[in-house]
Design a protein around this nucleic acid. Structure first.
Lengths: 146, 146
DNA sequence: GTCCTTGCAAAAGTTTTGCAAGGTG
DNA sequence: CACCTTGCAAAACTTTTGCAAGGAC
């Protein structure tokens, strides 16, 4: 799966789009292909700029709308759920977070057993790792009751 | 530490500020106190609004600048490192991410042993958990050589 | 041909910057 | 009283929305 050829991924995407009943446009293919071609998770703007090289008419609005559509249908996922505004933390002790996917509320999660994960060196590649934190996602009570 | 009284946290903050050589202003105390009083990780705007209730002259700019200052000095930390722009992922297989704290580049991390963490039920409180992902942070090779 | 999708322009929302006035150490 | 910090206003940036034209099915 990881090493699946780009074209194969795109074909799968086209099939899935048809199943979902959304239209397969050149813009959508370009956007999906751009995203599937890298593991660097570019921003919307970056995707837009890359596509513009060979598809100069594409609009940034389309990239925004398309990524949102794909995400809602489960064709892609958001890496950073909390991208809309900076969130700070006065608590510097090691702990993790859980975010409500509905209301975007974030709360602390304390679980000692998660503070000393053994992360194999080979996964880290050429990074000098400073730390990690776990972001759990779910739906909080008050959102579930709505 | 977790249950340390707010005033105690604020006092510690004031002492640390003096050590660091930054000025202790009423605005800074208010901002720190607001952040230290909750585990909900409000956005900059939310902090601003709360403080405005009892300190109507405070400026949103000050809140932005102050939080940035605190973060750079290590007085607080950012929950969502990648808050400046949406980042998407075409790869729906379970995997994690590592972000370079310098250039904000994000890459995939594959490590089977991290895909089935045993998260104790009591930590999850009243959330219905859908999933989790690990965000490692570090400095990539190209940023380290600069 | 129908209706979803696109592109443009404008609006809304978030964050940063310049500068003069004010307050801390 | 020096210099850091604040507040205001404006600019820069990111994301969303309305609407008419265009294209997929």
């Amino acid at each position: 799966m990881v090493s699946m050829m780009i074209q194969e991924k795109v074909n799968k995407f086209i099939g899935r789009s048809k199943e979902l009943g959304i239209k397969v446009t050149p813009q959508r293919i370009a956007i999906y292909k751009e995203l599937a071609s890298t593991d660097q998770h570019p921003s919307t703007e970056t995707i837009y700029k890359k596509i513009k090289d060979y598809y100069p008419n594409i609009s940034l609005t389309t990239v925004y709308r398309t990524l949102e559509t794909f995400e809602k249908l489960g064709l892609i996922s958001v890496v950073n759920v909390l991208y809309n505004a900076a969130r700070y933390d006065a608590n510097l002790d090691p702990h993790h977070h859980i975010v409500c996917t509905e209301c975007k509320k974030v709360e602390d999660v304390y679980d000692e057993s998660l503070n000393n994960l053994d992360i194999s060196n080979k996964t880290l590649g050429d990074y000098k790792v400073e730390g990690y934190s776990l972001l759990l996602s779910g739906v909080c009570t008050s959102c579930r009751s709505n």
